[in-house]
Simulated scan of single mutants.
Amino acid sequence: MRLHRLLLLIILQSLAKQVFAQKQIAITIDDLPTVSRIMNTDALRAELTDQLLGHLKQHKVQATGYVIGEKLVKDGKIIPAQYGLLRKWLKAGHSLGNHTFGHLGINDISAAAYEADVLGADTLLRGFLHREGAELKYFRHPYLHRGNTAEKRDSLEIILAKHKYIQAPVTVDNDEYLFAAAFDKAMGSKNQSLPDSISKTYVKYMMDYVHYYESQADSLFHRPIPHILLIHANLLNSKALGLFLSRLKEDGYQFVTLQKALEDPCYLTEDRYIGKRGISWIHRWAITKDKKGAFFKGEPAVPKFISDLTQ
């Protein structure tokens, strides 16, 4: 009897260790409805959106998308087609959050102007989401800026708490926007193999970044944490996101919601970082814990041919 109990205890401990070691990641997507200088008609924006949603559906991902308010209006009037794209996200089971009206960073404007920008998007989104049976509760900081002075940092906290927003951190930050700009340019070139080359390079780069922050999180917390990834609703991801999600699954990652990821106590870690740069929360926590230069080494670099294409 005691042997059976001992065996059961060993099995339970083993299962708990496996669950604890499960790698998890939440997918968050900024700049909705879409961001692309090429996909610039209602039909093309709908095509881009359908492709993004197709990748997410195939891999059973429940994402959170962050909406820029000014993309929903023109000359003071709402754009029905843009709201139609947001309905597609909601009907597919995804959540939507506030990314401000004009995508202004708090480092560059007053706290009062920032609050007005937050409320500009809030006005366009809250009633719409309520009518669609959804809730507006998450906020994503433009440029990941949280204040370059203590006063602005504290003002931001007060503003978002006042309007009952949950701040959406990012652990896996990256320079995906450079790949997106290169991809847009390549799609308009005569080199038919270039877009595919950029896509494959992008996926490898993103996996390198996931592993980079994975290692840093292990150093900070001595265990895996559920990561939060930042990407954008661009043409590049409409083509390459499926491959990227496949690579994450092959690497052992389970896709979780933002809400689930935020349940981990690591997201209660103190952040005292004040500066101009918008950086990963991993680095914010590391700076707060007084980590030095060696901790930050090994960050993946954007390949030169990608940088050259953005010139």
Rank of each mutant, 00 (worst) to 15 (best):
G120M: 00
R247K: 05
E135V: 09
W89M: 03
D184V: 08
R126T: 12
A186P: 13
D196M: 09
E270H: 12
I27Q: 03
E299S: 00
L15G: 02
A217L: 13
P80R: 06
K57Y: 06
K289N: 15
K152P: 13
E176K: 07
A26V: 09
V73G: 02
R272T: 15
K71F: 11
T149D: 05
P224M: 02
T310K: 10
L9T: 11
D117P: 03
I38F: 08
K249P: 01
A111P: 01
I29N: 08
R87S: 15
I27D: 01
D42I: 02
Y205Q: 02
T269V: 00
D173F: 11
S155N: 13
Y138W: 12
E151C: 02
Q22K: 08
N148P: 10
Y114N: 13
S14R: 14
N98C: 08
Q216V: 00
N107R: 06
R126Y: 05
Y177E: 11
K291Q: 15
L245T: 01
L220N: 13
G65A: 10
A294D: 13
G84R: 06
S199D: 11
I109N: 10
K297N: 06
S215F: 01
H94R: 13
F295Y: 14
D30E: 07
I78T: 15
K297C: 02
R146V: 14
Q192R: 15
T34R: 02
N107E: 12
I279N: 12
A181M: 11
A301K: 14
K91R: 15
S280K: 07
A92T: 03
L160T: 00
R45N: 04
S155G: 09
L32V: 06
H55R: 02
S95N: 02
A286P: 14
L309V: 09
V67K: 11
G127V: 07
I225P: 03
G84P: 08
K23C: 05
I109H: 08
I287A: 13
E115S: 07
D50Y: 06
Y114G: 09
D271Q: 15
I228Y: 08
N148M: 09
K276L: 12
T171D: 10
